[in-house]
């Protein structure tokens, strides 16, 4: 039998380019919304709590960075995937000879990138408003990509399960708040529930982000492992749901 499909490299490149094309049409809402809300929260807290301790400032800054990422990858991606499903445009991907896992990777990577301007803006706020010394490490890029995959896969799952775009947005917002809230609550406040935090895609990135950005250190190996496992598991679930026939 004759088989017709692209090699993996070409497939990933074409799928990435197809998703990047969304930027041409929709960059304003994606970038502005994912940047304005978290950056606004940082500014508001800076203005209302001038005497905040340095450690608390670090929590706020890292939480806001992750909020930017989760708005793009959980809320916005879930809405887009729900639209793909409801309009049946998703069928196009489902009948093409492509790896749907690779499609999820392309979607989550591109939606994750929409949050980068917001992350940069928050970093600038931290540096100039809160006077927090920040370090840049190339591992930041890896962290953002893996976080995008973990959170974006959750967004994809929500989009595939939601009956329509509006409900996907609602569910996405609820999940995003749950993920961030529980991921940011100090471990000591949770007691025996701490173990449960490993199932959240925000727990690992928050711990790693604080280490990398604020202390320039890389001593959070268990968090990397947890995040990677989370990302891979969520990817598997989302691509399984995508393959399901009617």
């Amino acid at each position: 039998m004759t088989r017709q499909s692209a090699p993996f490299g070409t497939m990933l490149r074409v799928l990435m380019r197809m998703q990047f094309a969304r930027l041409r049409r929709s960059w304003r809402p994606y970038i502005v919304v994912s940047a304005v809300m978290p950056a606004g929260i940082v500014l508001l807290i800076h203005l209302t709590n001038p005497g905040m301790a340095a450690n608390e400032r670090l929590n706020i800054i890292s939480g806001a960075m992750l909020l930017a990422e989760s708005i793009a990858t959980i809320v916005m991606l879930s809405q887009y995937v729900a639209w793909l499903k409801v309009s049946q445009a998703l069928d196009h991907y489902r009948v093409m000879p492509i790896s749907l896992e690779m499609l999820v990777v392309a979607l989550t990577t591109v939606y994750g990138l929409f949050a980068w301007p917001g992350v940069l803006l928050i970093a600038l706020e931290g540096t100039f408003l809160d006077h927090i010394p920040m370090h840049f490490s190339p591992l930041m890029i890896v962290l953002m990509l893996v976080t995008s995959l973990a959170m974006g896969s959750v967004g994809t799952i929500i989009g595939l399960l939601a009956p329509d775009e509006g409900l996907a947005g609602l569910m996405g917002n609820l999940v995003m708040m749950g993920v961030l809230f529980l991921g940011m609550v100090p471990v000591r406040a949770l007691g025996p529930w701490t173990i449960g935090l490993w199932i959240l895609p925000s727990t690992g990135p928050l711990a790693i982000l604080k280490g990398l950005v604020f202390f320039g250190s890389f001593n959070t190996g268990s968090h990397w492992l947890g995040l990677l496992l989370y990302a891979i598991s969520a990817l598997m679930v989302s691509s399984y749901l995508m393959k399901r026939p009617g």
Binding site: M1, T2, R3, Q4, S5, M18, A21, R22, R24, R25, S26, L84, S87, Q88, A89, L90, D91, H92, Y93, R94, V95, M96, P97, I98, S99, L100, K243, R244, P245
Partner: peptide
């Protein structure tokens, strides 16, 4: 459903628009 060999053998045009809008 979802098997790669099937997708390699069949090109399908559905009634509704494809995911090519962007």
């Amino acid at each position: 459903p979802g098997k790669r060999w099937v997708k390699e053998l069949i090109a399908y045009l559905p009634q509704h628009p494809l995911a090519l809008g962007d």
